[in-house]
């Protein structure tokens, strides 16, 4: 199983609970805004602690049974809704932030994203689609064991959506990383999800 999740979390008045055993490919958490889908991703990434439960990826426990692996050691490739590029670093430095020593030939590894011509640009000069592709590249270069995608298409226009969707499909089918993605768009859920979990 790629993702084994059984968690509960109280956030103010809301109660977030999810039980999930998902295999390879892309698992999509689908449901209306505001029911805690992003909180689930944050809990898997280690940015938010569940009140109780267990989270494991590929059999390794990240949370639960007395374990709470800090986010920097979970190796989650997290692509947020907004790109969250570091504004004081150029695109190249952003991409290599999590790459460690494996910086050689990095352009080939993310060639399919088509961002080679952006390397010397500052994040504030990028369009929404460009920034999101850089964010995906940055997550992939951090040698992740799995990808977390939080509404990665929501801030984009139709043409850019198609671009990013293809990039995600490439990661799912060619790079073969397990993906946990959140969306409120049924079309996206259908197209990208190997399985869709309603929340």
């Amino acid at each position: 199983m790629s993702f084994e999740i059984d968690i509960e979390k109280r956030l103010g008045d809301a109660h977030v609970a999810l039980t999930l055993d998902a295999g390879d490919g892309a698992t999509v958490l689908f449901g209306p805004s505001g029911i805690g889908k992003s909180s689930v991703l944050n809990m898997v990434a280690g940015l938010l602690a569940p009140d109780r439960g267990r989270i494991a990826v590929d059999g390794d426990t990240l949370f639960g049974d007395g374990v709470d692996v800090p986010p920097e050691r979970r190796r989650a490739g997290y692509v947020f809704q907004e790109a969250r590029l570091f504004p004081h670093m150029r695109v190249r430095a952003n991409l290599l932030y999590g790459a460690g020593d494996e910086t050689e030939g990095f352009e080939d590894r993310i060639g399919f994203l088509g961002i080679g011509h952006l390397l010397d640009r500052w994040p504030r000069t990028l369009s929404g689609g460009e920034a999101q592709r850089v964010a995906i590249g940055r997550a992939l270069l951090s040698r992740p064991r799995f990808l977390l995608l939080d509404e990665p298409l929501s801030s984009l226009d139709r043409a850019r959506r198609e671009e990013i969707t293809r990039a995600i499909e490439h990661v799912r089918d060619v790079v073969k990383l397990p993906i946990l993605m959140v969306t409120h768009d049924p079309g996206e859920a259908e197209r990208i999800g190997t399985r869709v979990v309603r929340m």
Partner: peptide
């Protein structure tokens, strides 16, 4: 803080 969280997920202590 969201940038700092992003950095944590990229492996930064």
């Amino acid at each position: 803080r969201r940038l700092e969280n992003a950095a944590r997920t990229l492996g930064a202590g």
